[in-house]
């Protein structure tokens, strides 16, 4: 794919997203919102993955952000829009505190500790019963943001996705890209080249967690309700992972591609198998890892390079 076609596709995609609320009904907009939300999570998950660290703590951070928002509104009387930013800030701060310890770990150890994060946050929410509403959850009394109108909520979610995309783009174009790739490829050589591994990882972890928390805030503001089961749902970990893996990891385009495909499929699956639709993602993750670890993007790239070598050979003959 050369630069001009990719620019045309990007423009077309932006145009479609801009005009969608004008003619689509409530249900398509709701589907679009879900797709965008999971896509944003997939992108942030991939951003951390570019450094070679897997986080299984997506649901934990989304849930944390959700509760930060709803408690700020219900207990603190914070304005709606500010509470979403607060969720990002709060999740970022918590990630800084936790990351300070757990980023001394690498690979497996880091991943498993993040896997526990969701469980830990959930237990804390359960136990602080008087403040958080405990297992029954908590409701925003004054109602959902924008009175639940699907148009403005669409723009809100799009803004969330925009932040994730911008961050990912920034990561790809700035020093982050070189630092994270160096850490992923070989930590020792990265260190000897003067890359401060811990600082880069911490920055990445904090930024991605803040965005994930903000997405949680947007989620909870669009539904006006949070309970441990709804906001720490395994969907938030699984679906973004499956999206990023299917599309192709270590890029911005991959998670977008996987997000569109799987996002639409997942909305359909939710209707078909209400309980247990997650099994599809579990199996998909297994199949992708075993048979196409570089995802659809990797397959496309391979096909592209094969085509060009074919052409070169023909030219040589």
């Amino acid at each position: 794919m050369n630069r001009s076609t990719s620019r045309i596709i990007t423009m077309a995609a932006i145009a479609i997203m801009m005009v969608l609320p004008a003619f689509a009904g409530d249900y398509p907009l709701q589907v679009a919102r879900n797709v965008m939300m999971y896509m944003a999570l997939a992108i942030t998950w991939d951003m951390l993955l570019r450094s070679g660290q897997i986080s299984f703590g997506l649901a934990g951070l989304v849930g944390l952000g959700s509760y930060a928002t709803i408690l700020a509104v219900v207990r603190g009387g914070m304005p709606d829009w500010l509470s979403i930013l607060f969720a990002g800030l709060f999740s970022g701060l918590v990630a800084f505190g936790i990351g300070f310890f757990i980023l001394r770990l690498r690979h497996t150890y880091f991943s498993i500790v993040t896997l526990a994060l969701g469980e830990i946050f959930r237990i804390i929410i359960h136990n602080l019963h008087d403040f958080t509403g405990g297992p029954e959850g908590i409701v925003i009394q004054q109602g959902v943001m924008f009175g639940g109108k699907s148009g403005p909520l669409y723009w809100l979610t799009l803004a969330g996705l925009g932040v994730a995309l911008a961050a990912s783009y920034w990561f790809e174009k700035s020093k982050f890209h070189f630092a994270l790739t160096a850490i992923r490829n070989n930590e020792v050589s990265a260190k000897t080249s003067g890359v401060n591994i811990f600082r880069w990882l911490l920055a990445t972890f904090v930024i991605t967690s803040a965005i994930q928390g903000m997405i949680g805030g947007i989620f909870v503001q669009s539904y006006g309700f949070a309970s441990p089961d709804s906001v720490f749902s395994a969907d938030f970990t699984l679906l973004p992972m499956a999206m990023a893996l299917l599309g192709g990891i270590h890029s911005t385009v991959g998670p977008i591609l996987g997000g569109i495909l799987l996002g639409l499929v997942s909305e359909w699956l939710k209707l078909q198998i209400p309980y247990g639709h997650l099994v599809v993602y579990g199996l998909m993750i297994i199949v992708v890892i075993l048979f196409m670890p570089s995802g659809l993007l990797g397959i496309a790239r391979k096909a592209g390079s094969r085509k060009s070598t074919d052409e070169n050979q023909r030219r040589a003959v």
Binding site: L49, I54, L115, G276, L278, V279, G282, I285, I289, L290
Partner: peptide, 30 residues
Amino acid sequence: TIRRALKAPELNQLILTFGLAIAFTQVINL
């Protein structure tokens, strides 16, 4: 499954067994 991923990077093995865990839980759930 796992045998095929033994030579792959550690990350792939983690994601693979995580996928197995989810698949098992959800099959039982279903």
